[in-house]
């Protein structure tokens, strides 16, 4: 409380004024841009707040929340979001692990450096551009994907016109963009295995699967957990790529949760309902963040 004792024997104890000087600006800024709008969203969510009839907005309590919780479209969008996560994340982890093991093998120095640099390209590509690229590459008539599949005697497929295929296309891009990230994270994990332990294990067995399970896996756990939680948060946020590629369509086939809220708020102009959806999404996010903290930042608490 009033710990203004400043002595070297008590490292880290500083006066309130000093503390405020360091933390104040960041905390106040983040409160103004992060918390005030959220409070406003909660206020909006309790109102009949439609942009087309602003004069008639009135307090309606939790009515919007009841509507959202009973709204099939909301839960469908949630279901789609977690379906995407459940399909894409295992693929990203398996392919990512494969690439990491491939690049972890000794030898081929320069070639592997090129590979590692090319892994950066998908992650760095602007999400909106990935969606635009999707329109170009997966086009029914002019798309290169159908051309390449044609060489194998397949297709042509209406990737963006068919509801199921549109979902597959979103999965494809998600896997394309984030498999390299998984590969790099897992590769970083593999390099933390002490070389002498790995060498000893290689003298014992030639099976890479055994080495992976018993020697390398423990060192991959922090990376795997980080990936699990970051990918969950990012899938809940997913907007740019899908918006520029399918706008949530055809129908509602690729309308993930962020796209649904954006449509209700900015294309149907029902800000009250959209705010209630946003608040519910926020609550889900906070629960997931709590998970994140308890996994990774234990050392901060001590």
């Amino acid at each position: 409380m009033s710990q203004s004792v400043k002595s070297p024997s008590m490292p880290g104890r500083v006066s309130r004024a000093t503390l405020f000087g360091f933390l104040g600006p960041a905390v106040i800024t983040l409160a103004l841009i992060g918390i005030v709008p959220l409070a406003f969203a909660v206020w909006t969510s309790m109102r009949d707040y439609n942009l087309t009839k602003l004069a008639r907005q009135k307090f309606i309590g939790f009515e919007n929340y009841v509507t959202v919780l009973n709204d099939g479209a909301f839960w469908d969008a949630m279901g789609r979001t977690f379906t995407l996560l459940a399909i894409a994340l295992p693929m990203q982890l398996i392919f990512g692990l494969g690439i990491a093991l491939l690049l972890h093998k000794p030898g081929l120095g320069f070639f592997k450096t090129i590979a590692r640099l090319s892994l950066v390209v998908p992650m760095a590509t602007t999400y909106a551009v990935v969606g635009l690229l999707g329109q170009v590459m997966f086009n029914l008539k002019y798309g290169v994907v159908n051309q390449l599949l044609g060489f194998l005697g397949l297709g042509p497929f209406d990737w963006l016109g068919d509801p199921n295929l549109a979902f597959v296309t979103v999965i494809f891009w998600d896997v394309w963009q984030w498999t390299p990230f998984c590969a790099l994270v897992l590769l970083a994990g593999l390099t933390t295995v002490p070389p002498e332990i790995e060498e000893a294990a290689r003298l014992e067995t030639k099976s890479w699967l055994t080495i992976l399970r018993h020697v390398q896996l423990p060192f991959l756990v922090p990376g795997l957990t980080a990936l699990l939680i970051l990918r969950t948060a990012d899938t809940l946020k997913l907007f740019d790529m899908v918006f520029t590629m399918t706008r949530g369509g055809p129908g509602a086939a690729t309308e993930f949760i962020a796209l649904l809220i954006q449509r209700v708020g900015f294309r149907a102009f029902d800000q009250g309902l959209a705010s209630a959806q946003a608040v519910i999404l926020l609550i889900i996010t906070i629960v997931l963040s709590r998970l994140y903290i308890s996994f990774f930042y234990r050392e901060v608490h001590s």
Binding site: M1, F239, T285
Partner: peptide, 27 residues
């Protein structure tokens, strides 16, 4: 520095990274 509420402050900072932009875009 050591101070009260450090843990909560930390958590709050992290949550901001997780929050979907659409939640803030509306208000």
């Amino acid at each position: 520095f050591e101070f009260r509420g450090k843990k909560d402050l930390w958590f709050w900072f992290i949550t901001n990274r997780m929050v979907s932009p659409v939640v803030l875009a509306l208000p």
